Amino acid sequence: MSRVLVLYYSSYGHIETMANAVAEGARATGATVDVKRVPETAPAEVAKNAHFKLDQPAPEARVDELESYDAIIIGAPTRYGRIPSQMASFLDQTGGLWARGALNGKVGGAFTSTATQHGGQETTLFSIITNLLHFGMTVVGLPYSFQGQMTMDEIVGGSPYGATTIAGGKGERQPSQIELAGARFQGELIAKTANKLFG
């Protein structure tokens, strides 16, 4: 079976929760799954004063270990419709992997969180997907076969480009059951794809 990395950055825990749901879906396929986070680059005092969730148990990832995975699923919150500097800094260090084509042909996907329904979910997903395409990866989104994203019964995240959640303007909203189901669905689909290619 394939090896899958769920790589994320989370300031307040919303993406951390989504990352664990993505991993749960991937594990359901029999894949070996690691959940890792990128290093926090904000000064400690700034992060503390902003009430960042600093007690996340996931280990920090290293750039040099990315090539050992068959699939990499990247999650990050939005920053003005794009990825935050913490994730960008990590990905900016992958030039050596790119130059060697170390990630060519591997499977990738993206998931995100925004404060509002229209706060940049799809542009943030595409800012992650752009990196995956430059690496030569095969991108797997969240197709409409996951019907939860079509509901009109409640406010819900989700996009054909990847799983999403809506956190609220003050981070007061946690991922809903539908949003977590979407994350599990995408994780499972990506792992199934990687299993077919590498398993």
Score class of each variant (00 low, 15 high):
P43F: 00
S113K: 02
S159H: 08
E16H: 10
D64S: 10
I166F: 09
R27N: 05
V139F: 15
T130I: 04
A58Q: 10
T17K: 15
D55T: 09
L133H: 04
R62I: 01
A115L: 06
F126I: 12
Q93F: 02
Y9D: 02
Y12C: 06
G182K: 01
E122Q: 10
N104Y: 09
G158E: 03
L103D: 11
V4R: 11
A76P: 02
S89P: 00
A50R: 11
T164F: 04
D70S: 12
G136D: 14
K53L: 12
T17L: 14
L197P: 02
T17F: 09
T151W: 07
V140N: 13
I178S: 08
A26N: 05
S85A: 15
Q149H: 13
V46E: 14
T32F: 09
V46A: 11
M150Y: 04
Q93W: 00
S85Q: 09
A110F: 12
A26G: 09
G105E: 11
L180S: 07
E188N: 10
M150T: 11
S11A: 14
L180R: 04
P39I: 10
I128N: 01
A71D: 11
A47G: 01
V22Q: 01
G109Q: 13
Y161I: 00
V107Q: 04
F126N: 13
T41C: 01
I83T: 01
T114Q: 12
S11T: 06
F111A: 05
E16G: 11
R37K: 15
N131D: 06
Y8R: 03
A42R: 05
E172L: 05
S127M: 01
E122W: 02
S85R: 05
Q56Y: 13
Y12D: 01
V33I: 00
T193M: 12
V33L: 00
L132M: 14
E40R: 04
G101I: 15
E67K: 13
L132N: 03
G169A: 06
A183D: 06
A31L: 14
G169W: 08
P59T: 01
A61E: 08
M137Y: 07
S176M: 08
R100I: 07
S85Y: 03
T32I: 08
E67R: 10
L66T: 02
M152E: 08
F126H: 15
